[in-house]
Amino acid sequence: MRSRILMLLGAAVFFMTFSTSAMAGDLDGFKGEKGEIKIAGGTAHIPVMKEAAQRIMGVSPDVQISIAGGGSGVGIKQAGEGLVDIGNSGKKPSEDEVARYGLHLFQWAIDGVAIIVNPANKVRALSQQQVMEIYAGKISNWKEVGGVDKQINLYTRDEASGTREVFWNQALKKGEIAANANFSVSNGAMKAAISQDPFAIGYVSVGHIDESVAAVAFDGVVPSRETVKEGKYAIARGLYSCTKGAPAGLTKKFIDYLFTAEGQQIVVDQGFITVK
């Protein structure tokens, strides 16, 4: 506990010293604020949440923001049960869940779901038909799609993942996923697994793509912020933050911040598409 406080203090001091005053405008509302915001859920959201939290804690050291993962299912559930203030979800919660928990939804970004392979893999384009057959296990060797003569290692996400739901609905058209597919527990874990495995195929939020993995063009369209924004890239979804009931106090300020010019700039910087 004590070390956590020290860490938070350290982070606060760091940001007070080094953050430029130019971006202070949208953060003014947090000055002198006290309290705690607990955030959990979708792992695609984490980069934006972290950056926003650091900036807020930079201007008001008495605010503590904790960010946990767990996936979209966890986000919806924990927000609904009042365990966290904000539950993030990469899929729209079902009407049943919204009604049962009294959830309020805030969509602050649009995100693409990109198919990724190891950078050592030379395959850089797949058609939807090929992707569906690969995930169904009908195409099981990379040479059938122009790669080396090696077995394709499938990676997917757990059933509660928002990223999985979008990928399954839009890329696989709710098609079958072979039983031998490996399961990763977060966008980060998926990226780590693909970057380690030269014969892997998987999918992550476009915001998570970096040089450790290679994005694959889907039906001829390379997934990027631009192609998702223009609507050319087909596998896209909204990123939601959910609260139980209408947000109030610090939680409301945090969500409002995500929609300010500065908040939306963070969204862009982290590789997502703004909603404004």
Partner: peptide
């Protein structure tokens, strides 16, 4: 259990 735990509480999963 760890993987399915995040599923909706009311679901059969």
């Amino acid at each position: 259990i760890a993987l399915v735990f995040a599923a909706d509480n009311e679901s059969l999963e």
